[in-house]
C-alpha cells in the first residue's frame, strides 16, 4: 500500500530523508512509556512554558504544584529536546544557523524581520492556547488519547481543526 511507504518528501534540515513514520511513532511511544515506567512522570511539554515563566513571574498560577514539583524533571527534559535537535543536525550533514522555513519562504518570501514577527505571533497563540487547553500535542494528544481521556479527545480535535482551517486559509485561499 502506498500510504505504508516512507515519506517521499525530504526535511528542510539538510534535505535529509525523514525516519519512517512507523519507526518514529514507535520511538515516541516507547519514550512516553519509559518516562512513566522508569520515572513515574506523565509526558507533557507545554507545562514547561510555565516552568520557564515561573523564574520571573510570581502569580499563584506559577507557584502551583505541577510547576514547583515538575521543574526539576521537565527542565532537563526540555534541555534534552534542544540537544536532540543539535545532535540530529550535527550527525546529519552538519549543524548551521539557518532561516530556511521551506514553503513559507517560497510562497511569501518574508524578510528576517517579518518572519520573526510571524513566528512570534504564532508563538503567542501556542503559549496562551496550550495553557488554556491544559496541554499540547504531547500531553493531550499522545498521552491523553492513549489514556482515553475526554479532555484529550476534545482538545486534539480542537487543535487539529484550528491547524487545518488556518493552513487551508493561508495556502489554498490567500496564496491559492
Amino acid at each position: 500500500m502506498d500510504v505504508l511507504s516512507p515519506s517521499p518528501h525530504t526535511l528542510i534540515l539538510n534535505d535529509l530523508q525523514p525516519m519512517h513514520w512507523a519507526l518514529a511513532g514507535a520511538a515516541i511511544g516507547l519514550i512516553t512509556l519509559c518516562l512513566l515506567f522508569v520515572a513515574n512522570r506523565r509526558l507533557g511539554i507545554s507545562t514547561g512554558f510555565d516552568d520557564l515563566c515561573s523564574f520571573v513571574l510570581r502569580r499563584p498560577y506559577f507557584r502551583r504544584g505541577a510547576v514547583v514539583l515538575g521543574r526539576t524533571w521537565r527542565l532537563p527534559f526540555l534541555a534534552g529536546l534542544v540537544l536532540g535537535g543539535v545532535l540530529s543536525a550535527a550527525l546529519g550533514g552538519g549543524w548551521a544557523l539557518t532561516w530556511d522555513a521551506g514553503m513559507l519562504d517560497t510562497v511569501f518570501a518574508l524578510g528576517a524581520g517579518a518572519k520573526l514577527l510571524w513566528m512570534f505571533a504564532g508563538g503567542l497563540l501556542i503559549g496562551f492556547g496550550t495553557r488554556l487547553a491544559g496541554g499540547c500535542t504531547s500531553g493531550h494528544g499522545i498521552f491523553g488519547l492513549s489514556n482515553a481521556e475526554g479532555s484529550g479527545v476534545v482538545t486534539t480535535l480542537a487543535f487539529m481543526a484550528g491547524g487545518v482551517l488556518t493552513t487551508q486559509l493561508i495556502y489554498r485561499v490567500f496564496a491559492g
Binding site: 492556547g129 487547553a133 491547524g163 493561508i170
Partner: peptide, 16 residues
C-alpha cells in the same frame, strides 16, 4: 478551555 485553547493553539501550530 479545552476547545478554545485547542483552537488557538492549532492556529499557532499552523502559523509557526
Amino acid at each position: 478551555g479545552n476547545i478554545v485553547g485547542g483552537l488557538l493553539f492549532g492556529i499557532g501550530w499552523s502559523i509557526t
